[in-house]
Design a protein around this nucleic acid. Structure first.
Length: 855
RNA sequence: GGGCGAUUAGCUCAGCUGGCUAGAGCGCUUCGUUUACACCGAAGAUGUCGGGGGUUCGAAUCCCUCAUCGCCCACCA
């Protein structure tokens, strides 16, 4: 025997992956139905985490399955520059050297991050390899590759020309620490325990006052109005009057608004700061209020405020202003108040709504076709509910701010006339800061695109839209597999941009996976220290074990804890396969059988039928991405049917060619789940064609065995099981079985003897032994009455359960409405069950009467 | 506030369009070293399918309701 007893994944995995690469196993076939997947590009800078292992595994199972089906399969790898994310990582890196991004020009910073990312490139690619990702490396795409950048420019240009791009001064979610704006969706809201201050604003005419409530008193310096509800009787006399803003002395109007002001909240009067609050901004637009910015991009109070507050941080200013208001008698009261406050998801800094000139995309013209496509079910979602969620999102979509203030990104190809702020032109010469056009001087926009703007073209840009053959053959993609957190920011935009740019949906199905939580179901987090280290798991258990363990029992979009027991179980499964192969190798001396493969025994017919059922149902499951169910079927077929029964039976009745061929098929259907161990075995055993790979073998198309003969083996299994149970109950380690002539038994005598550990199996006409009542065959355990009594308890238990079953079935069949309403097939089935139950019941009663007449 | 999901064996979870006596892995009990495998084999125990109501011949599965726990979205000063 050449193979070691225990499968050691780490000895084989790297070589196996290298073999696949060398063999170009992951290139699409020249012919066949197309199946295409493009990896949602992971952050080029990230280390292999368990979530990536999950998404990679799910995609790879689908991809490998379709490849085995003989289709022309394209699986494109990629990496994301992940603009802000990566810059944040690099900044931490710089901080260790005592530097910050402000020590460099934008170009220098870009170049340094580029080199930093390039350093990690090999490490990054090896993460795909270590998991067995069957991607085509020749098509690797990075989100800063020329084709991606050019596509972003072309799309921006198209939108520009068609009037979908506009520049506007809007409130953006600004992180004063990172110095950049975020999309709404990137802001993390957290409950903050703060205070609600009530402030007294005196009427300018001296006749009274109005009390407003606020959680951010420092913004009062930028107030430009006070709003009350038009129908609020408390304030009807105030309409059209003005108040004098304390500390500032500015005279501001009292306005009425019915949309925004809730009379029931606070005092029913709201101070309006259009430059620092989104709701106030919207109200300010409706009432043409002036915008007064008082907080700068560095998070400090600016020159617009009274001198004593200038240069203070927001927190400092808040304290001082509250103190001053109190001293001057403007503070009415303070109460504790818990509310949600936006934070930077990276550094936790409170997000400031600040005014900034930004590029916006008008989303309505993009959302409408996407909605239409979704409503027409052009894209299948797994799970289905995600489609509705996306529709809801698209219906309420707001315009998209695509400007970001990072260095690490794609510069926006827009230039501003230095002499005319409103004169913007589109130009791709972004490597220059100043350009001249028609005698006018233009300065480059210092911003870069939101990462999602460029990555939303991922499905077609990776395929070389518009002219590449890949695009023509593989677009739209067959599957987009991703996590729920990017359903809105990415999936929705890929659909919108795909339709906008190519006129077609970018993919025909979307699979959303749930998150891998920590073992106790909580979120994994580095600071808590409950993060699973994927490379360690691979090192210890093998990539196959991680792949199978992580998908086992996992449904689409359901969060689940990482379960080390499932990984261990999967490792055991890989080892089981390995030992099956060792046994078969010992039978074939390491050379694959080339003889005729024909079923001869009942077991042969049975295993062929089981194999056919399994291959078909696994395929059916994988077609609709039911990964866990498919894995479960393979696992139980291999372990329970093949190893425990067929292989054991083959020790008594050999059909080595069929045994070997079945193993070969098993390797193929197991391959999507456990690519490494199946390929390792495949290579070790050498099939007919020495150059062949499990990875490019073909999904078995099996002619099922003869139904009657397969059924005979089912009876054998049933009989062996009952003999084992009976002997165990009585405490026998071996026994003799007598049976009335039946081919199912005589044809399989050696198997039965071996598997039930019998010393003898004899044909008789009648026996006074203990009847095996569960079997439709007439067989008796040859024991005397005293020994049989050991079995009384078990018999009585069986009697009980058969009795219950009998009565339930009987009741069902005497129910006229059941007979009338249930489908015929179901009724027929019930009738058969009743007959069988009745027979077993009679048999048990008979045995009890025979051996235990007093019971 | 709105939306979505979950609640099934001691643990982690399957159970698709309603139909065999509700399953898996781990754990547990008992037995076993037959030359593929102790990362093994054999036999077994454990469930009022969260509570209540409804539809149906029939409900873990469909509907309503309550409870508990999650997630997403919005965010009222």
């Amino acid at each position: 025997m050449n193979l070691p007893k225990v499968y050691e994944p780490s000895k084989y995995e790297a070589d196996i992956y290298a073999l696949w690469e060398k063999s170009q196993a992951f290139q699409p076939r020249k012919a066949g139905k197309s199946f295409s997947v493009v990896v949602p590009p992971p952050n080029a800078n990230a280390n292999l985490h368990i979530g990536f292992a999950l998404t990679m595994t799910l995609q790879d199972i689908a991809v490998r399955y379709h490849r085995l089906k003989g289709e022309s399969v394209l699986f494109v790898p990629g990496a994301d520059h992940a603009g802000f994310e990566t810059q944040a990582v690099y900044e931490k890196h710089l901080a260790k050297e005592g530097k910050s991004r402000f020590d460099f020009t934008r170009e220098e910073l870009y170049k340094r991050i580029w080199d930093f990312v390039a350093l990690n490139r090999k490490n990054f690619e090896d993460q795909f390899r270590s998991l067995g990702g069957s991607v085509d490396w020749t098509r690797f795409t990075f989100t800063l590759d020329e084709k991606v950048v050019n596509r972003a420019y072309a799309t921006f240009k198209k939108m520009w020309d068609e009037g979908l791009i506009y520049r506007g001064e809007r409130l953006v979610n600004y992180c004063t620490f990172h110095g950049t704006a975020f999309a709404d969706i990137e802001v993390e809201y957290k409950e903050d325990r703060g205070q609600l201050w009530q402030l007294r604003y005196p009427l300018t005419d001296g006749n009274g006052e109005i009390i407003v409530a606020t959680t951010r008193p420092e913004t009062m310096l930028g107030d430009t109005a006070v709003a009350v509800h038009a129908d609020d009787p408390r304030y009807s006399d105030f309409h059209g009057k003005t108040v004098t803003l304390p500390l500032v002395g500015r005279e501001i109007p009292i306005i009425t608004d019915t949309e925004f002001v809730d009379p029931a909240f606070g005092t029913g009067a709201v101070k309006i700061t259009p430059a620092h609050d989104p709701n106030d901004f919207a109200l300010g637009e409706r009432h043409a209020l002036p915008l007064i910015t008082v907080i700068d991009y560095d998070g400090k109070m600016n020159a617009e405020v009274p001198a004593e507050y200038r240069g203070m941080t927001v927190e400092e200013a808040r304290k001082q202003i509250v103190k001053d208001l109190e001293e001057q008698g403007y503070l009415v009261k303070v109460e504790d108040y818990t509310h949600n406050v936006g934070h930077c998801y990276k550094c936790g800094t409170v997000i400031q709504p600040l005014l900034r000139d930004q590029w916006f995309v008008d989303m309505q013209p993009l959302a409408k076709p996407a909605l239409k496509a979704l409503e027409a079910d052009k894209i299948t979602f797994y799970p289905e509910a995600k489609k509705e969620q996306l529709i809801n999102y698209l219906k309420n979509l707001r315009d998209w701010n695509i400007s970001r203030q990072n260095a690490w990104g794609i510069p926006i190809p827009a230039f501003q006339n230095v002499n005319n702020r409103d004169d913007w032109i589109y130009d791709e010469r972004v490597d220059q800061e100043i350009i001249e056009v028609d005698g006018e001087i233009y300065r480059r926009d210092s911003d870069v695109f939101d990462t999602w703007f460029s990555s939303s073209s991922w499905p077609y840009v990776t395929l070389g839209y518009p002219d590449n053959e890949d695009f023509k053959q593989f677009y739209p993609l067959s599957l987009m597999e991703t996590g729920g957190e990017i359903l809105y920011p990415w999936v929705s935009r890929m659909i919108m941009l795909g339709l906008y740019v190519t006129g077609e949906i970018p993919f025909t199905s979307v699979y959303i996976h749930g998150y891998v939580m920590a073992e106790d179901g909580s979120k994994m987090s580095k600071s808590i220290g409950n993060v699973i280290n994927a490379p360690e798991v691979i090192e210890q258990y093998g990539a196959d074990a991680l792949r199978m363990g992580i998908i086992a029992g996992r449904a689409a979009a359901v969060n689940r804890g990482y379960d080390p027991r499932k990984v261990e179980d999967a490792r055991n499964f890989a080892n089981k396969l390995w030992n099956i192969a060792r046994y078969i190798e010992s039978k074939t001396n390491g050379t694959a059988q080339r003889g005729r493969v024909e079923p001869e025994t009942d077991a042969d017919h049975w295993i062929l039928s089981k194999l056919q059922q399994t291959a078909d149902s696994v395929a059916a499951d994988l077609e609709i991405y039911r990964f866990a169910e498919a894995y479960d079927r393979v696992y139980h077929f291999v372990w329970d049917d093949f190893a425990d029964w067929y292989l054991e039976a083959s020790k008594a009745q050999e059909n080595i060619p069929l045994l070997t061929r079945t193993l070969q098929h098993i390797l193929t259907i197991t391959h999507p789940f456990a690519p490494f161990v199946t390929e390792t075995i495949w290579q070790t055993l050498k099939w007919d064609d020495e150059t062949s790979l499990a990875a490019t073998s073909l999904w078995p198309v099996i002619k099922p065995g003869d139904a009657e003969r397969a059924n005979a083996f089912e009876k054998v299994k049933q009989l062996v099981g009952e003999i084992r149970t009976a002997m165990k109950n009585i405490g026998l380690s071996t026994g003799v079985i007598e049976y009335r002539p039946a081919s199912a038994i005589s044809d399989n005598a050696e198997i039965i003897k071996r598997m039930a550990k019998l010393s003898d199996l004899t044909e008789v006409e009648v026996s006074d032994g203990l009847k095996l009542t569960g079997s439709s065959l007439d067989a008796w355990l040859a024991i005397d009455a005293d020994t049989a009594k050991e079995y009384l308890e078990a018999l009585q238990k069986k009697l009980q359960s058969e009795q219950t079953a009998f009565e339930r079935l009987k009741a069902r069949l005497t129910n006229k409405r059941y007979i009338d309403n249930a489908p015929e097939a179901v009724v027929a089935q019930t009738k058969q069950q009743l007959a069988e139950t009745e027979a077993r019941l009679a048999s048990i009663q008979n045995e009890i009467a025979r051996f235990f007449p007093n019971n």
